[in-house]
Design a protein around this nucleic acid. Structure first.
Lengths: 273, 273
DNA sequence: CCTCGAGTTCAGTATAACCGAACGCCGCGA
DNA sequence: TCGCGGCGTTCGGTTATACTGAACTCGAGG
């Protein structure tokens, strides 16, 4: 691993909405490296356009990052496939849907469409991160990670509690992730915010790997009466996106030696309990 | 300068909408470095989330870039200040406005709002780059760069010709930039596409540096009759954004020893010819 | 079954990154 | 007005680091 590049990436990650501007001394202190080293990193990153210098010798994120991000979005089959499905979901239910991916153990929200009947969800926002153990999308994504990496990240970040329903022990988490993996969807039953529930399902790429998760967020009083229908809706929507990405459920039917794919069927393998 | 970080940034810049996926060998060939070096770069960048591995050992841009870009946009005073002004501009004229910055000698479009009477401009798009010598925003941005850097970039990229009106010689460019700097705005008179014109003006930050440019793009047959009004409109809009960023025109008025700022006046210093 | 091309690994060597100290600059307070 | 403190910046010797090219593994295609 190239340590210099690691340092550079660490520098980039320092820049947050809370502190979008850093000086040499601050960076040096944050990364615990000598000032001259921090200086070299900042200068180089700025020369490459990943950072920009402000007038007073401090640094902010650079427009090249914006350009790269647009390239990513342009070429992202995931977003292209998910957006129309999410729009239909919002149109049908009037609730809010999220699309999220996992980035080093945390949930990163990639897209968010709000319905007209939806309540304003402040916590989640496009480009924002949240811990993974407490949301529907987070549990779906964790459930399809190797258990050791889940343990590792729990060891680092811990299981922060938001509501009485938040999962706080490793044993609870293990059971929940096992259940989520088996049934093919996850619920968030007021685990991150009282009164807010959601149902989430995994999205797979052509090779079957879970690369994202989709959810419908619903107020608790509308969630519990409609849990069944919500479940089939989100699972079906996620499966449709997966199919768009080239993934087909592994239920092959053999007819005269040539196998064919079954492209539909609501919840054939994983029916809600 | 840290060469390793430079290499890493070069790797990131390889990823384009045209080729959003790269393998080790391809990167090694593109950067003219041995395979093992390219391998180390890609692995490290992927471990840091700036890239992601696809199933087949190739690489795409990573979601961390999306996150960083969102942080940039969130904390960008420029966009926050410019967006409402651009919306009013579009509402009033029904034409398309662009907001652009300069990133290593090229124009990067940061925001684009289309009016209802506007023609579809395919070339410009949010997150896309174009050469700077042929567009209104480009000439505005170049005009406020040191002339040596302009020369350097011309030496590298050349002055590509798009239409008969495109500037193609250094002498033309020097004169035009001088004029643009003096009068405080630039025109694009069918220099990038026949039938398409625009008027552009600079946006300055608190210290007076030109950090962006704004433009109104108009079909030629609507541009020439309305050039005066278009000019005042875009210059005024850009000045309003600059003021929002903390910049005030250097026309001080002295009253009883205490100086006060003059915040308005359409085109006091730079009247259209 | 063989080949080709891809990604990956490894160990020696040259070099590029690291470091601490010293410099110049600006703003703040005396 | 002067002096101080903190900042970003520069510099050259030392060491650890990144570079290199050859060898290895794996899969796809013929």
């Amino acid at each position: 691993m190239l340590q210099t590049v690691q340092k550079a990436a660490q520098v980039l990650r320092l820049f947050t909405p809370q502190q979008p501007e850093w000086g040499v001394t601050e960076v040096a202190a944050a990364l615990e490296i000598p000032k001259s080293g921090a200086h070299a990193l900042l200068r180089t990153l700025a020369a490459e356009g990943l950072l920009q210098r402000t007038g007073n010798g401090r640094y902010r994120l650079g427009w090249t990052l914006f350009e790269l991000s647009q390239t990513l979005l342009d070429s992202s089959a995931l977003l292209r496939a998910a957006r129309p499905v999410m729009e239909r979901l919002v149109a049908g239910w009037g609730e809010t849907t999220h699309l999220a991916v996992l980035v080093d153990g945390q949930v990163l929200y990639v897209e968010k469409l709000q319905g007209d009947r939806a309540l304003e969800i402040v916590l989640s926002g496009v480009g924002k991160r949240l811990p993974a153990h407490c949301s529907g999308v987070g549990k779906v994504l964790l459930a399809h990670q190797p258990w050791e990496s889940v343990l590792r990240l729990v060891a680092v970040t811990g299981l922060v509690s938001f509501t009485p329903n938040t999962i706080t022990t490793v044993e609870q988490l293990r059971e929940e992730l096992e259940r989520v993996r088996q049934q093919g969807y996850a619920y968030d039953q007021e685990e991150v915010m009282v009164g807010l529930c959601c149902a989430a399902a995994p999205i797979r790429d052509e090779s079957g790997h879970v690369i994202a998760a989709m959810s419908l967020s619903v107020p608790a009083y509308r969630f519990y009466p409609n849990r069944q229908r919500l479940t089939t809706a989100i699972v079906d929507a996620a499966r449709r996106v997966s199919e768009e990405l080239g993934y087909y459920q592994e239920e092959w039917t053999w007819g005269n030696g040539k196998r064919s794919r079954s492209r539909s069927s609501g919840l054939a393998t994983s029916a809600p309990t």
